[in-house]
């Protein structure tokens, strides 16, 4: 789900940048650091605006100055039970991998309806019922997130298409 969220970030600045354009450096660094980053639980899509840049504070011992920046950003946070659209990246015999934005989701065989069978026709592996439904590389699927685990900088999720209205999207 997408949110607009106010976040804070502390940026150290090297003394060689102590000049009138210090703020520019801070902003550039903020965008570079944060946009597209994964905090573990959420993904920062875009920074909307910067609300406040604090007065810099020199850190004793290093000479660097620290700025506290508060900003608003669009973040995406997946939830257990949420239904999302995903792009299939890889099909293996035990299931398939899909990307939901920056999050990797694995849909295991037990979460795939039994009528979709694993086949290796013409060396391109896919789950198909030999009718209208085929899950192969680059196909779009709608999945329900069954579980999420966060690590620093990465999110793993388990998905399911074993439900009505889930599975490959008809293009």
């Amino acid at each position: 789900m997408f949110f607009v969220k106010t976040l804070e970030h502390r940026i150290p600045l090297h003394p060689s940048y102590f000049a009138s354009d210090a703020q520019q450096h801070i902003l550039a660094k903020l965008y570079a650091d944060k946009e597209g980053s994964n905090t573990g639980t959420e993904l920062i899509i875009a920074i909307i605006d910067v609300e406040d840049i604090s007065e810099p504070k020199v850190v004793p011992g290093t000479g660097q100055a620290e700025y506290d920046v508060s900003y608003r950003a669009i973040v995406w946070r997946p939830f257990k039970g949420e239904v999302v659209d995903a792009l299939v990246t890889n099909v293996v015999s035990t299931g398939f991998f899909a990307d939901v934005g920056g999050m990797k989701v694995f849909v295991s065989k037990s979460m795939i309806p039994p009528q979709l069978k694993y086949t290796v026709d013409g060396s391109t592996p896919s789950f198909t019922d030999n009718a209208e439904q085929t899950v192969e590389r680059n196909s779009q699927v709608r999945i329900r997130i069954k579980g999420i685990r966060s690590e620093i900088g990465a999110m793993f999720a388990i998905g399911s298409i074993r439900e009505d209205y889930l599975g490959p999207l008809l293009q």
Binding site: T94, F106, S110, M111, G147, F156
Partner: peptide, 16 residues
């Protein structure tokens, strides 16, 4: 029996 990134791929529970 199948785990993905510390999650059970079949029930979605956190294995860690």
């Amino acid at each position: 029996e199948v785990q993905f990134g510390g999650l059970c791929a079949n029930c979605g529970k956190d294995m860690t």
